[in-house]
Computed example of a mutant assay.
Amino acid sequence: MEHPRTCGITLHDGSNCSSIVPADAELNLCDQHLLAAADIAAREVGVTDLLPSPCLACGSRLGVHYPSGWLCAVCEWRHGEFPDGELAPPRLDVVYYIRFGGLIKIGTSANPRRRIASLPHDEVLAFERGDRRLEQRRHAQFASQQVNGGEWFHAHEALLRHIEVVRGGIDPWDAHARWLSSLLALRG
């Protein structure tokens, strides 16, 4: 029969904590000291949770809670601070890549949410910061697969590889929110 473990914490007076550690505990800490350690960690690194309301800068609901307040987990905007309402939103041009069936559209917009909503598509693949000049370069880069000289292209290996590199493993809308938040933060 295995003897119960006692907590591995040394108390302020130099004695050892005599509380029993649960048999299935991964750390040699009693429940009281495990909770104290969790509180210390929460103060240092925060606790990821849902924000009390969506982030005003990017719309994310995910945040990190510190004793001093909340930060958006996506764009790090301090919850409760308001973007300056007197200023127009910053302009953020993106080249977007959307898929519809076996075709991919390479387009550009300063308001991709509205633009993409107006287009037939199955999936938003990626965003790349850039304006019409970058869009034109991408059209020239993949011209061999262009459909009728327009903005739609046959999905092919080189284009799909390019999209994966541009996406960088990040959801396109999360990337857009970060870029927009960065522009807002630069305004002060």
Rank of each mutant, 00 (worst) to 15 (best):
E86N: 11
S68R: 07
P52T: 03
P52N: 05
V94C: 10
G69P: 05
D84C: 09
L87G: 07
L11A: 07
G8F: 04
Y96C: 08
L103W: 03
I40Q: 12
E26I: 00
N16H: 12
D93R: 15
N111Q: 13
V21A: 02
F82P: 00
H3G: 09
S53Y: 05
D39M: 09
V94N: 08
P89I: 03
C17Q: 00
R5E: 07
L29Q: 02
R61G: 04
P90Y: 02
D93V: 09
C7Q: 07
P54H: 05
R43V: 06
P54T: 02
V74Y: 08
Q32W: 03
W70E: 03
I104D: 03
D39I: 06
C7D: 02
E86V: 00
A36Y: 05
V47K: 13
L92S: 15
I104P: 10
Q32A: 11
S109F: 13
C58N: 10
D13S: 09
C17V: 00
L50M: 06
H79N: 03
I20T: 10
C7P: 13
R43E: 11
V45Q: 02
S18V: 08
L71P: 01
I20W: 00
T48K: 14
A38E: 13
N111L: 07
T10N: 05
F100M: 10
M1W: 14
P52L: 01
R61W: 09
L103N: 14
R78V: 13
N28G: 06
L62N: 02
S109H: 15
E86M: 03
E2R: 11
L50S: 09
D49M: 07
E81P: 01
R114L: 11
A57R: 11
S15V: 04
P67E: 01
C72A: 04
D31C: 05
D84L: 05
C58W: 11
R99A: 14
E81N: 11
P52E: 02
V64G: 04
I104F: 01
L35V: 05
T48W: 14
P112S: 09
H65L: 15
S18R: 12
T48C: 06
H33P: 11
Q32P: 00
P22R: 06
L103V: 09
N111H: 14
L56Q: 10
S60V: 04
S68A: 10
R61A: 02
